[in-house]
Design a protein around this nucleic acid. Structure first.
Lengths: 115, 115
DNA sequence: GCATCATATCACTCCTTGCTGATATGTTTG
DNA sequence: CAAACATATCAGCAAGGAGTGATATGATGC
């Protein structure tokens, strides 16, 4: 049955997409990516800009680093983080464009409470 | 302190983005959106194409509908669903483009297990 | 080498959310 | 109106993931 072949072929791509979206689906990580889109920052600067706790920022940074969404460079006792690709900023812009179309629906959707 | 004003101003946008990403961060919903990108389908066709259970598909469709990502039209005793905007397909393509850059990192990231 | 600062990791708890099975609503046909 | 089909909703369970506080690692300067 052709449907099954398509499904299996698509499954890997779907899971990849889902994993990336999960990486982006948290306000803390979006806040971190947001400030990093303005330019590279060391951890305590990210903490200050986002208002998140330091361990929390470190946890999310590790996640983002593992996923390849950010990169890091040691600078003395600081570690400076930056987004790994301008495509990330582009993707966030695309999301905002989509939100311009479906914004009120997203706001009304109660399936996902606010984090 | 200027940082706080920026943070509050950004918070609403960030939460909106996060909500949209959460809507996209599930393999079942991505599978549904994937088949709907090929063209409109009624529920039992979506069930067949995705291999998901019928209540599961209905639940996700309600979520996608509330969020404005899909739209529906009654057709006799069928209800036909379609993506609400071509921007959704565009966004998925952008994601794939980003994945071409960070794919191995996303695969390696263990912070999010497979659903 | 010790104190200090920057960052990372760990153990734990709570909440969110996805899935399932059963059932309800709604629509068409005979 | 009754039967059959299409879809939606509900209650409950199980697991994933975010946040916190304490602590560990690592680097710098005196």
């Amino acid at each position: 049955m052709q449907v099954f072949a398509d499904r299996n072929a698509a499954a890997a791509g779907i899971e990849r997409r889902a994993k990336l979206f999960r990486g982006l689906a948290d306000p803390s990580r979006l806040a971190i990516l947001g400030v990093l889109c303005e330019g590279p920052l060391v951890v305590h600067e990210i903490v200050k800009h986002t208002g998140l706790s330091q361990p929390n920022v470190s946890n999310h940074l590790r996640c983002l680093l593992d996923c390849g969404l950010v990169a890091s460079d040691r600078d003395g006792r600081f570690i400076r983080y930056r987004i790994s690709s301008p495509r990330i900023a582009a993707l966030l812009n695309d999301v905002d464009a989509l939100l311009d179309v479906v914004a009120e629906g997203v706001g009304a959707c109660d399936n996902y409470r606010e984090a």
